[in-house]
Design a protein around this nucleic acid. Sequence first.
DNA 1: CGTATATTCTAACGATTATTGGAATATGTC
DNA 2: GACATATTCCAATAATCGTTAGAATATACG
Lengths: 220, 220
Amino acid sequence: MNKRQTKDLLYEQVSRIGKAVSSPKRLELLELLAQGEKTVDAVAAEASLDIRLASAHLKVLKEARLVEARREGRFIAYRLSGDDVSALWVNLRTVAEEHLVELKVEMERIFAAPEKLDAETRRSLLEKARRGDVVVIDVRPSAEYETGHLPFARSMPLDEIRQRLKELPADRDIVAYCRGPFCMMSAEAVELLREHGFRAHKIADGTPEWQAAGLPLAES
Amino acid sequence: MNKRQTKDLLYEQVSRIGKAVSSPKRLELLELLAQGEKTVDAVAAEASLDIRLASAHLKVLKEARLVEARREGRFIAYRLSGDDVSALWVNLRTVAEEHLVELKVEMERIFAAPEKLDAETRRSLLEKARRGDVVVIDVRPSAEYETGHLPFARSMPLDEIRQRLKELPADRDIVAYCRGPFCMMSAEAVELLREHGFRAHKIADGTPEWQAAGLPLAES
DNA sequence: CGTATATTCTAACGATTATTGGAATATGTC
DNA sequence: GACATATTCCAATAATCGTTAGAATATACG
């Protein structure tokens, strides 16, 4: 086999990964699975897809080895095939945020203040959370919290906040996070909390961003 | 605009990056441009593409804002639009190498021993090169060396090695690198050097891998 | 063992993309 | 200003992909 044919083979293989991430729906599914293992109809519902279409997209992701499937009774549970896949998603989204003006303006339109974190801010947030100077709340569904969450964060799913307001302090800063920069749950939580007089802020990070920055998650 | 429409818009934008990297040819062009600014016919020749097809692919990359173009006299020079693009290429290739068995076996078939470097090995190589315990040679075309190269590496383009053998030490290890794990220039260099009795080895890293690992390059 | 549920498979269609060759544009040179 | 060179534009074709709907499979439950 000559050099050209060999090279074609190599790039062809890498393009399998590229093709897998070339569809907006599949990217959404990847981000969902980055929050933990989920069944087909769970991701289909979250991404507003017909179950059969979601299944087809998951199949493509599986053939690119970005996800793995496992039967769980009547359901089939999909999960990312590694932390590097989650990091790839973060990388793709970051490059898009950096270079695509259309995405930048859209993000600014949706989220008034885009609270991007740098390494230093992440470290200091962690320290303040450890000391209890701020209360970090994870507003995702509790199953996702249990798969992995920011250290010192407590679970406070968006649809439970209203009933659990008394668990939160009125005299300290509350920092809310959810699935990542594209997720709107933390913004909704902050709005709700501010209406009730709390000092709430959101950060753009989700667990995938935190992990991609090389920081450890907590479990249980 | 409702939540679904907003989400669709966001993932749609990220998928522009995904679509750009979904073609093997475009990945090859990206890797070439990660070695430095190049003209259309230069990359077309390197990638064995018709100039018109190369131009079309570069246009797609430009529309995804992964590359930028600049007129240079009669030529048009393309370059990556940032170091993060180079890092994205490395990330995609690494995920592919990690998860795609077909790629793994193909790599093993081509390159007898895949000399992957971890953080520690990179550091110690750098130290040995600094002290002069090993001679690191950059076998890429000299223009690429000038755009950026590993610290303490000297330029020794593949097609000049035969004439410049006397510049190399016979009593020390020689480490050759080129554009990255897919590039065959360092393997050819090592073969040539060993035939002449040198103690030559190759590493898989190119400048993109080195940079993506957070290490600095040298210029000039 | 029959029924309900979750998922996959298959076939079909329309939309998008890769590739090709010819024509057009832009720059530099004589 | 005519010519050569580098690149882009345009139109056409073949290949691939996304989506939809109906049928098939596989497991759990009564």
